[in-house]
């Protein structure tokens, strides 16, 4: 009888906690949308910010966010998957591996502001680049690499052992077995990890403030040569991202509609991050179906 009551109480508590979580999520997202959505317009998404009058947009910031994200993923995914392959397939159980693992642990638990300050020291000051999009992407890579390595390693490890043995027993080399059996089967997990990483990178502010900078240099959206100084694609220019912009506008914005801009940008950010999460889910499910069905 007692056990039964305890069981009921426990169930009730858990349901309550679950409801609370859902409520917080829905409330938060709902509030941000309610505050921000009315300010999102085509004009808002594409025009540059204003200096002192109302009606400015977030066009360059949005572009910078996407560009920083792109560069970050370009660096993070290959290195992260490579690290995952190494840890899952090649690293034995020696002291070096254990050291590497704890290094990754530590790196993954660093607050992003610390990564940002490290980036300031290395990618801004030591290299003499100043605030650059590339520096921001490198800092974000450091910040995201542990997650990418870990999800890749787990995805590879979760491929059933008998799949790997089947391939090796056919006289297929270890490396070819990795590329043609393990990676395809691990792909859904790796993609999920990559997209979650992307979401984290897109919303990150602290690691970027002191690396990619808090101002967007003047860019000319008609010049797409990455080597010309005014090009939006030039990685060596400073580039304030959306998340950094939200922080800046709401803490020291001079424009009269600073709160509206922050609200609109926040709503946009939340939407993008949610889309990343949903995308991760659908893409990995779709890939899984594709990988496990006919291929030719």
């Amino acid at each position: 009888m007692n056990a039964k009551i305890a069981d009921r109480i426990a169930t009730a508590v858990f349901v309550l906690i679950a409801l609370l979580l859902v409520f917080i999520l829905v409330g938060l997202v709902g509030y941000l949308m309610w505050r921000g959505l009315p300010h999102i317009s085509w004009h808002f998404l594409t025009s540059p910010p204003a200096f002192s009058e109302a009606g400015g947009g977030i066009g360059p910031q949005l572009f910078n966010s996407i560009y920083v994200l792109f560069l970050t993923m370009l660096l993070t995914v290959p290195i992260g998957v490579g690290g995952g392959i190494f840890l899952a397939e090649y690293a034995g159980d020696g002291w070096l591996t254990r050291f590497l693992r704890s290094a990754i642990e530590v790196l993954s638990s660093l607050p992003s502001i610390v990564v940002g300050l490290f980036g300031l020291l290395v990618f801004v000051q030591y290299t003499g680049w100043g605030y650059t999009i590339l520096g921001g992407a490198l800092a974000l890579m450091l910040f995201n690499l542990p997650l990418m390595v870990r999800t890749s390693e787990e995805a590879i490890r979760s491929v059933p052992r008998d799949q790997k043995e089947a391939s090796l027993a056919l006289g297929v080399s270890h490396w070819r077995t990795i590329t043609s059996v393990l990676l395809p089967s691990a792909l859904p997990g790796i993609v999920t990890g990559a997209i979650l990483t992307a979401g984290r990178a897109f919303g990150e502010a602290a690691a970027l403030m002191f690396t990619a900078g808090m101002s967007s240099s003047r860019v000319d959206f008609t010049d797409w040569n990455p080597f010309s100084p005014l090009s939006p694609l030039n990685p060596m220019r400073s580039g304030e991202t959306l998340a950094v912009n939200i922080w800046k506008v709401s803490s020291e914005g001079l424009v009269p509609d600073a709160r509206e801009i922050a609200a609109g940008a926040s709503a946009l950010l939340v939407i993008v991050v949610l889309v990343f999460n949903l995308l991760a889910r659908f893409l990995s499910r779709w890939l899984y179906k594709k990988m496990t069905a006919s291929s030719s």
Partner: peptide
């Protein structure tokens, strides 16, 4: 391993 093939306990076709 090519010339000395192996069949396992559980059927393990690739997906």
């Amino acid at each position: 391993r090519k010339r000395i093939g192996m069949v396992f306990q559980r059927p393990n076709p690739f997906p």
